[in-house]
């Protein structure tokens, strides 16, 4: 059964069509890669799905269980609460806050106390804070940042910042995880580690993962299905092998033969 269905999604910025009539069907548990040359509209598509932009037309339907939820046109925080989580291409951590706080903030949706309990320090506050603390440490342990919990996010090395972003996204307890260039700027060793981590996370949390990536070693190793965007249009979809040999994809990346 498909967990995410995108129908005829279009986004125009003034006269520029950034995403045009994109159709996509993602099955539960899939690991989908989204590739394409620079400026193809990959990040725009992510921003449309996660609600940062409202689509010009088209629909996004999310079916986590049996009930379909229409996501297009909703606020980002509401979409996240339905079970979507994302990382950002240009890392967007809460830089001045500790690693632990970064994760704790993302656990906001399942915190069961409000402003009054926090000001009056009612028992609910302590109970929930303990639970959140333990769970946050667990997540940090998974991405290998448990020892760095007190460090400010801005002081982490680049690769660890990327990992922290993943931990933060996981803290929202997602069903579908969107990774925007998770391996950007990493060396081959870090990329290999990340590839393993993504595979593990998928197993452990039963995630459906959609990722944008330029690093073909990661995409071809990890993804079962790949969608290729060019100039905002979907030009190909299929297994890694099919994509490698697709004439249109080769043309999009290398140009047409003269």
């Amino acid at each position: 059964m498909s967990i995410l269905e995108i129908r005829q999604l279009t986004k125009n910025f003034g006269g520029i069509a950034a995403v045009v009539d994109v159709d996509m069907v993602v099955e539960k548990g899939d690991l989908v890669g989204l590739i394409g040359p620079n400026g193809a509209g990959k990040t725009t598509l992510f921003n449309l799905i996660t609600g940062v932009y409202a689509p010009t037309s088209g629909e996004i339907v999310f079916t986590p269980y049996n009930k379909a939820i229409l996501l297009s046109g909703k606020k980002p925080w509401w979409i996240t609460r339905q079970g979507f989580a994302r990382t950002f291409q240009n890392i967007r951590l809460f830089k001045e806050l500790s690693v632990l706080d970064n994760v704790r903030i993302a656990m906001h949706k399942d915190i069961k106390y409000g402003v009054f309990s926090s000001i009056l320090r009612l028992p609910a506050y302590y109970k929930e804070e303990d639970r959140v603390f333990t769970k946050a440490l667990e997540l940090l342990d998974i991405v290998g940042l448990k020892e760095k919990q007190a460090e400010l996010a801005k002081n982490l090395p680049y690769g660890q910042q990327r990992r922290l972003e993943i931990a933060r996204a996981l803290a929202t307890d997602p069903t579908v995880l969107f990774l925007d260039e998770p391996a950007a700027g990493m060396n081959p060793q870090e990329t290999a580690d990340l590839t393993r981590l993504i595979g593990e996370l998928r197993q452990r949390f039963g995630l459906t993962i959609i990722l944008i990536e330029h690093d073909m070693s990661l995409v071809m190793n990890l993804c079962e299905r790949i969608y290729v965007l060019d100039y905002g249009r979907l030009i190909a979809k299929g297994s890694p092998d099919e994509i490698k040999n697709n004439q249109k994809v080769i043309e999009a990346y290398l140009g047409e033969e003269v």
Binding site: T50, W77, F94, K95, E96
Partner: peptide, 18 residues
């Protein structure tokens, strides 16, 4: 913490479900 995250980065904050 939710309020502080808004100050830090509003887009990221909203993307984390706040």
């Amino acid at each position: 913490r939710a309020c502080i995250s808004i100050k830090e980065d509003e887009i990221a904050s909203e993307a984390m479900g706040i």
